[in-house]
Design a protein around this nucleic acid. Structure first.
Lengths: 163, 163
DNA sequence: CATGGGACCTCTAGCCACTGGAGGTTCAAG
DNA sequence: CTTGAACCTCCAGTGGCTAGAGGTCCCATG
């Protein structure tokens, strides 16, 4: 087998989808993208279906869906019935809630941080608001203490790819 | 040696700072927090300086500073001169820019996602906007394509702890 | 003084979603 | 036939923790 006009090498697929080559291989490894045919020399030869599927994956990633959610969405998109549509809606709503939650927290953070940066250092270094704010949380440097109330849970907070 | 009223066990330090026990040990491992004295039985015995330093670290993490930045800030806070203050300002400004960048992207994302979710599925599953939007990026489903323009770089996008 | 149980110890592996590098093979153009 | 870009596999690393296994220590009660 060789690369024809119907098949795509991994590099061509990468160019057409904007997905990096190692990422494509990784999607294959975790089973999001099925293993393509190979040329006689062992190189991957993708078809149109792979292109479609990878576009879907990449687009969903841009919306911040985790890979597990994308896996479900891909399954659902193959069906096209009412139940699938509702399930997709539910996944998307959950993602929206997630994003709105992050947004709120990030806005609070932005306010605090910009306050800290703008107050800055009033001439005397001993009076540096930045280091002082970080050192003494409890002495009125903070606008709110929303960020200090609950145990941290950093790991659900990633933001998806952006420009 | 034993635990006195001046020294803190790792559990007490955890309670006083709100930082989880394994996290404290991890900060020690990566050199953010110096290794404390030990009791005769080998348990960590922290002093007041550790408490102060860990408070600083945790507070800086709440502002989303990466550990490397916190390392620098800690170095700077020990000095208290003009140059340190300016350096701290620079680090904080960079972090603010970072946060504002994320914020913008997250806002765009929120708009797109909520549009997608609200448009939803108009009766017929074949018309499901959610799966269609994800499938066809280029056919006018998106409000903008800001999220599709540049190669993704997901990994600098974590948000700090929140409530 | 023995015992129980909670807090502590070290070490290792796992999370997400990739990214990069080493070291080797294949392909297509000249 | 030679070059060199693109491809291959495998492995390790990123950030910032978190969880578990399997063991030790400390202190209060009986």
């Amino acid at each position: 087998m060789m690369m024809t006009k119907e098949t795509l090498s991994i590099g061509e697929l990468s160019r057409q989808t904007g997905c990096k080559v190692p990422t494509i291989r990784w999607y294959e490894q975790v089973g999001l993208l099925s293993a393509p045919a190979r040329t006689s020399g062992g190189q991957r030869a993708y078809g149109q279906d792979h292109l479609t599927r990878l576009d879907f994956i990449r687009h969903a990633r841009e919306f911040g869906f985790p890979l597990e959610a994308i896996r479900s969405l891909l399954d659902l998109s193959g069906k096209g019935d009412q139940a699938s549509c509702e399930a997709a809606h539910q996944i998307a709503s959950a993602q929206l809630a997630n994003v709105e939650n992050k947004l709120k927290r990030l806005q609070a953070l932005q306010a605090e941080l910009s306050h800290m940066v703008m107050t800055g250092c009033r001439g005397a270094p001993a009076d540096c608001r930045i280091l002082a704010t970080l050192a003494d949380h409890d002495h009125g440097h903070c606008l709110t203490d929303a960020h200090a109330s609950e145990p941290p849970s950093v790991h659900d907070l990633e933001i998806p790819p952006g420009p």
